[in-house]
Write a protein that binds this DNA or RNA. Sequence first.
DNA 1: GATGTTATTGAACACAGTGTTTTGTAATGA
DNA 2: TCATTACAAAACACTGTGTTCAATAACATC
Lengths: 181, 181
Amino acid sequence: MDRRQAKTKKAVMEAFTGLLAHRSYAAITVQEIIDEADIGRSTFYAHFETKDDLLRVLCEEIFDHVFSEEQHKEKTHDFSSGAYGIAEQVTHMLYQLDDSRSYLGGILSGDGGEIFMRHFREHLKEMFDKKLKKNKNIPRDYLLNHAAQSFAETVRWWLMHGRYKPEDICRFYMEAVPFFV
Amino acid sequence: MDRRQAKTKKAVMEAFTGLLAHRSYAAITVQEIIDEADIGRSTFYAHFETKDDLLRVLCEEIFDHVFSEEQHKEKTHDFSSGAYGIAEQVTHMLYQLDDSRSYLGGILSGDGGEIFMRHFREHLKEMFDKKLKKNKNIPRDYLLNHAAQSFAETVRWWLMHGRYKPEDICRFYMEAVPFFV
DNA sequence: GATGTTATTGAACACAGTGTTTTGTAATGA
DNA sequence: TCATTACAAAACACTGTGTTCAATAACATC
């Protein structure tokens, strides 16, 4: 990849996350990102289709970070089926998310949260799919959505209000949503 | 209240809910609401400060509908503390929400959902506050948020995907979130 | 170092949507 | 009847988005 492109993308991402640390996604304008990144307007639009596209890219990078290590672990230690590992996986995700704490606040507050939460939920549903206990009283569809959404919401609650350690949050979640094998 | 004002407000609300039945909140413009309601632009802004304000008013009307009957019941039969009644209350709310099903879809999809869900969650937290079981392992703060958010999400899931009866949804929820007295 | 390619710049532009203002008209209630 | 209030219509300012284009700079490769 052209060094110029890489430099531009890095500048945009840093400007964006920097702004997100102080203002909500909805309140940030493309012009501000451009000014902060110190690039031309047309350059921005050469890299990202729209402002939402930029947010989507950032979310994907976060999710890559949060989920990829997990997949690595799975392949290495075969955690893929079994109660052992789910707590560790959850805790690990929480640690990864904590790294992005500074700008996740800006993403989550206001309507940018919608985009993040929706993608996050879908990733989680895929991840949790094989880890759910059977339950004859509740449709699997509902339970899977409940488990995923509850975790996403747990993260949101944690990042916005609480100041607990990842291990604590994991314990709360596992106790509140006791439907894993 | 002036008959003209009442007529205008009714026209706007009907136009708005009518449009919400077919498009998401974000995709609907003020101009469309005005055209549909067949009123002047300045008239709209004499009644509502902004487009978000209109959504807020609609949400409040829905919540009045959903929660007021509950408060009535509480005062009448003293359900305020006790396991008995929570399932009935939840079921009753679900029936009320089902009445608004046609346009709730438009509110919930896209970023309008944020406004509805946030207000809904806060109302629910207030309502659930006295009905939660004590739990020494989980902070009350977390548990209350979890119970409220999970119900809001249950409603969303139900309105968007599922086609169950209110009684079924109530059963799923009570089983998934078994933290009520 | 010369050369063709690609990225960046900056400014101007079209466009959509929001919310405001003004003036004349019509409905209302007392 | 009459003062008050709501409404309509159109023009307006404003903010923000995304596009276009010609000039310039950086790049990779030979």
